Amino acid sequence: FYLLLIDDYDKLKPLYDLFKEDYYTVFDQEMYSHDWWLEVMSPDASKANAIKYLKQKLQCDEVVVFGDGKNDIEMFEEADYSCAVENAAPELIKCADEVIHISVPQYINQRKK
């Protein structure tokens, strides 16, 4: 399951405190709209766990991921190569292998060549 709540910090913080011990939660200010987002999901349902599963299930040689928010950090750590878009959260840029200055589809087309 996945639950996304968008509201003011003061309204979401008590819910974050309630859920954070039993569920995988991401509580952060959305970088484009500046709303506060609370994401609540099963402890097994994270982007990092999805990467682990796909690597094993598909026997991938390399997993390349793209992201822009702090909620992508764990996914970046699990992937073989990570690309942050140029307007990504500074925390994500710090852990990216590369910062891209073109669109993701353009990057993929260039990388295939």
Rank of each mutant, 00 (worst) to 15 (best):
I93Y: 00
H34L: 13
T25G: 13
K20W: 08
P90A: 04
V26A: 15
A96M: 01
Y32F: 11
A96G: 07
E30R: 07
I6E: 10
D35P: 05
D17I: 02
Q29K: 13
K57N: 13
H34I: 08
F76T: 05
L18Q: 12
V63T: 14
Y23K: 04
E30D: 14
V99R: 01
D80T: 03
D28F: 09
D72G: 10
S46T: 05
D22G: 07
E74Q: 09
M75I: 00
I6A: 14
L92M: 00
L18R: 06
V104A: 02
A48N: 07
I108T: 13
D35A: 11
L5H: 06
I102P: 03
Q59A: 13
Y81R: 04
W37F: 09
S82N: 05
S33Y: 02
A84E: 00
A79I: 01
E30V: 05
K55C: 09
L18Y: 11
Y32W: 07
D80L: 03
V63Q: 12
I100S: 08
Y2V: 12
V40G: 12
D35F: 06
V65S: 06
C83Q: 03
Y16L: 06
V99G: 05
V85F: 07
W36T: 14
V26T: 13
K112P: 12
Q59S: 13
P105E: 06
Y23H: 13
Y81S: 06
K70Y: 03
D35C: 08
P90K: 02
N49K: 09
M31T: 04
D72T: 04
Y32H: 12
N71K: 01
V64I: 15
D97S: 08
D7G: 12
L58T: 14
V26P: 13
L92N: 00
I102F: 01
K55M: 10
C83F: 03
V104R: 02
S46G: 06
F19G: 12
F76S: 08
Y2N: 15
D72S: 05
Q106F: 06
N71L: 02
D28V: 12
K20N: 12
V26H: 15
N87D: 15
C95W: 02
A88T: 00
L3N: 13
D80I: 01
Y107W: 03
K112D: 15
I73Q: 08
S82M: 06
S42K: 11
S33P: 04
E21F: 09
A48Q: 10
H101S: 10
K57L: 09
V40E: 10
S46K: 02
